[in-house]
């Protein structure tokens, strides 16, 4: 499977899901438990992505000091209510500086 096929398939699949939600009859959300589940799925998926990207490399667990420190700095910036772009700059900056020094 070439990268191009993966790129197109991801694009088409993502679009189909967006359209699917917009045209689905509203009665699906009648059950409050389904609404709550729908609400929490993104939290689960995004946290899983953060964890895997922070701790794994090539399918195995691997601790990368500068990357973890960068994410720690991002948490500190978020706790200080820094704007979105500042958080990203701090994360990448701390990782870059540590890689330069270590």
């Amino acid at each position: 499977m070439s990268v191009w096929i993966a790129v197109i398939a991801t694009g088409v699949g993502c679009y189909a899901l967006k359209l699917g939600g917009l045209v689905t009859p509203q009665r699906v959300l009648a059950d409050p438990r389904v609404r709550r589940f729908a609400d929490l799925v993104p939290v689960a998926l995004l946290t899983a992505l953060i964890a895997v990207q922070a701790l794994a490399q090539n399918g195995s667990l691997q601790l990368d000091g500068p990357r973890l420190a960068g994410l720690g700095a991002a948490v500190a910036a978020l706790l200080l209510r820094a704007p979105f772009l500042v958080v990203l700059a701090v994360a990448a900056g701390v990782t870059a500086v540590l890689r330069l020094l270590l």
């Binding site: 995004l46 946290t47 992505l49 953060i50 990207q53 922070a54 500068p66 990357r67 960068g70 994410l71 991002a74 948490v75 978020l78 979105f84 958080v87 990203l88 994360a91 990448a92 900056g93 701390v94 990782t95 870059a96 500086v97 890689r99 330069l100």
Partner: peptide, 14 residues
Amino acid sequence: AFGLDTLGPAVFLA
């Protein structure tokens, strides 16, 4: 070297 690999998880976290 510029820490760009940290940006992906940092975006989700934010």
